[in-house]
Amino acid sequence: MALDNTDVEKIAHLARLQIKQPDIDEVTSRISNILTMIDQMQSIDTSAVTPMAHPFDATQRLRPDQVTETNQRDRLQQIAPATENGLYLVPKVIE
């Protein structure tokens, strides 16, 4: 599956990544190579196979509905890039 630069730009936007214009051809070619390798999967018919999301057929454990966490805001916001009045700051969100 070969991609063109427009496809790659679309994917980059979905992933919120920026690709500098001079790099785009190389990025496209490398990703296309990877997809070509991946396309080996299409060499076999898997229509009768059930997809496997986890290695084991284990099921979800549940925890009791208890509040186990306490307020750690000050400590947790020490590693935050920008906060004010306990809020995380981001460029204005427009709706």
Binding site: V8, I11, A12, L14, A15, V27, I34, L35, T46, P51
Partner: peptide, 23 residues
């Protein structure tokens, strides 16, 4: 990230992600 984003994107999920889970 881009390969993964592509493999999950609309129209490609079955051919890539689901196929890989089958393999």
């Amino acid at each position: 990230i881009m390969v993964g984003t592509y493999a999950l994107s609309a129209g490609y999920y079955d051919a890539y992600y689901k196929k890989a889970q089958k393999i």
